[in-house]
Amino acid sequence: MAAPTTIADHRPHARASARGGGVRRLPNVGAGIGGFVWLAVIILPIYYVVISSLRSQTGFFDGNPLAPPDHISFEKYALVLQSGFGRYFLNSVVITVVSVTVTVAFSLMAAYGVVRGEGRLARTSFSVFLLGLAIPVHATIIPLYYMITRLHLYDSLLALILPSIGFAVPITVLILANFIRDIPRELFESMRIDGATDWGMLWRLVLPLARPALVTVGIYDALHVWNGFLFPLILTQSADLRVLPMALWAFQGEFTVDVPAVLAAVVLSTLPMLVAYVLGRRHLVRGLTAGFGK
C-alpha cells in the first residue's frame, strides 16, 4: 500500500526531496494508514447513499446495507425527477446565476472605486466592507424577513437573490480589490491621460486582467448561493419556489419511509457539483478557499 511512495519520492519536484528523498527513503507507513482510514470515513457514507438509492423499496430493509443490490433499480430516480426536481434545479440555477452576476459586477465596480477612488467615500466604504465580513447571516434573518414581507417580496425568487447579493458583496469586493491593487499604476495613468473614463478603464483594462480572480470569486459566491438553506427556509414557502436544498428537505418530509427515494434526491442534487468538480477541479478548489490562506 505504501510501496508506491518510494517511487513517487524520486520525482524531481521541490517537495519530493523534502519529504523523503535524499537521505532516507522509508515510506511513511503511519501516514499512509491514517490516510486510508480517513478515506473510509469519507467514502463509506457516500457509498452507502449511492448504493441505497439504487435499491427498490423491498430490497432496502433486508440484507447487508453495503452489498450491491441484486438488481440495480433507477425507479427512485424516476420518482424524484417526476416530483418536480427539474423545477427546483432551475430555481437554484436562476438564483445562483443572477446573484453571482450582479454580485461580481457590482463588486468589481466597487473594488475599482476603492482602489482607484480618492476621497472619503472610497475610504469609508472599504472599512464598511471589511466590517461586513464579521456579520453572521443568521443574526439578520428576522429583520430580513420583516423587510422582505414589507417590500411584498416574500415567497419570490427575488427575496432570495437580494440578501444573497448583500452578503456576498463584502468578501467579493475585498478579494477583487486586492487583485486590482496589483495592477501597475502606470497602466491606469497612461489610459487616463489618453482620456479614458472609469468605465473605459474598467472595461478595457481591469476586466481582462482580472478574469482569473473573477472566476475564482464567482465560484466561491456560487457555491454559497447554490448550497444556501437559510434564506429559502425563511423567505419562501411555496413548493414552486423550492431550491435544491429546500427540495431535499421537503422530499425527506414527504417520502419519510421511502429512504431510497430521499437518497436518490441527495445524489441528484449533488450531481451538478460533481460534474463541476470533475470538469474544473482546480478552479473549484481555488474558489472554495478564495479569501482565506494564500
Binding site: M109, G117, E118, S125, T140, P143, L162, F167, P170
Partner: peptide, 30 residues
C-alpha cells in the same frame, strides 16, 4: 480633461447600497 479620481469613488455605491440595505440595516433592525 482626465476624470477626477474623487468621482471614481462613486463606483462603490451600488455594492455599498446592496450591502447596507440587506446586511447592515437588518443588523440594526435586530
Amino acid at each position: 480633461a482626465p476624470q477626477s479620481r474623487a468621482r471614481s469613488g462613486l463606483l462603490t455605491l451600488p455594492a455599498l447600497l446592496m450591502f447596507v440595505a440587506f446586511a447592515v440595516v437588518p443588523l440594526a433592525g435586530a
